[in-house]
Amino acid sequence: MRKVDSVDTKEKILVIDDELAPRESIRMVLKDQYNVSTAEGAHEGLKMMSEHPFDLVVMDIRMPKMDGITALQEIKKRHADTEVILLTAYASLDTARDAIRCGAFDYLIKPFDKDDILLVIKKGLEKRRANKDLKMEREILLDRASYLENQVSEARNNLLTYYESTVQALILTIDAKDHYTFRHSGRVAKLSAAVAEEMGVAQEAVREIQHAASIHDIGKVGIVESILNKKGHLTSDEYAEIQKHPTIGVRIVQSIPFLEEAIPVIQYHHERYDGNGYPHGMNGEDIPLSARIVAVADAIDAMMRDRPYRQALSTERVLQELRENSGTQFDASIVDVILAGKISLA
């Protein structure tokens, strides 16, 4: 028969023992300080625990139907946070080891002293409270971490929105100045992304290259239209002006923090692999990969379109130009990707 003391504000202890005398003696020792319930066996005790939470269980090891070690395993499986103290009439180290290994907080040897019971109960509940506090702190930290993750995700999404809006604004600026450059930049961006992906570049970097390529000629907004749209060959002075557009482009975007990854493409897409490009005369792999990719895509699209000073070249002629300039004007590894024929140039 079960017995329950009803003091809700006190910590709850369940005493499980098939013998009435030790069960009641423990209840009498604890009842003034704790809310004590009793059960005549493990099955009854487990049923009570399924109906009401308990902070600590005091349980005999030797009981019929289900012994204390087996009951302990069930309690830890169902109520992992509940501390358990086992009672035994045998001073056995093996019993102690089994109990501790299965998750018991401690064990008491019958007959036991009142002060021993109170002390071990006190320590068991202190551990229980400490574990509850740690669990609560962990949950608070997890909630804070989740909140911060959501904040970072929201900030990232907002930044991406601002990024896309800014890129679109810059593209429209290019279009207003030179409609050819606008269409050209869009095609170069698409081709650059395809080349980067074929080369095994990480997806995030592919997106960065595509965005950067879409504004690689933004510096041309600082070049007079008479030079940009001139029919015929440029004079040396006019060509010198054209060569300023990478530097102008960098000045435009460097004040926008989230466009920083576009700077290498804008600044170096006219550098040559052999070092004879502009504006800095960089060579080989000193030129960022993103700029080397865009340089090839830029040249391909320029050759395949009509310009005021010449007609578009055929695909065969464009591929021939790439072969002839591989390793000099262009990075040979990028040219090889194009010549493999896996990427559409249309």
Rank of each mutant, 00 (worst) to 15 (best):
P288C: 10
L259V: 00
T38V: 13
A297D: 00
R2I: 15
Q73C: 15
L289C: 03
E208I: 02
Y147W: 09
E40A: 13
E40G: 11
R144C: 04
Q311N: 07
T161L: 07
N131V: 01
T88C: 09
D306W: 04
R27A: 11
G341T: 09
A202D: 10
I100S: 15
Y34K: 15
A99M: 06
I293K: 06
L160P: 12
T88Y: 09
P111D: 12
V253I: 06
L125K: 09
D143F: 05
Q267M: 10
A39S: 14
P257W: 04
F330Y: 06
V15K: 08
V221S: 06
V201P: 09
A205D: 08
A240W: 12
F258E: 01
E324M: 01
E261A: 07
A145W: 14
N35E: 08
E40Y: 07
P264V: 02
Q254P: 09
Q73W: 05
Y268Q: 15
S333P: 07
R2W: 02
K220W: 01
L234I: 04
T328F: 02
I300V: 09
Y273H: 07
I263N: 08
E74M: 10
K220H: 01
D274M: 13
A21H: 09
R101H: 07
I16P: 13
S314C: 06
K244E: 11
H211R: 01
V57C: 05
K127G: 04
I75Q: 03
A99I: 02
R317H: 02
A193Y: 02
R128T: 06
D55Q: 13
L93E: 04
D298K: 03
L191V: 05
R138L: 06
S192R: 00
R129A: 11
V36P: 14
D336P: 02
P288E: 10
K135F: 15
G277R: 09
S326V: 00
K114Y: 14
H245P: 14
I121V: 15
L46C: 15
L234Y: 15
H211F: 02
A213I: 00
S314F: 05
E154F: 11
M199H: 14
L160V: 08
V294R: 03
A176K: 15
R144F: 14
T315D: 09
E316Q: 03
A212P: 00
R144Q: 04
D5Y: 13
M304H: 09
V36K: 13
A196M: 02
M199F: 04
I85C: 03
D81L: 08
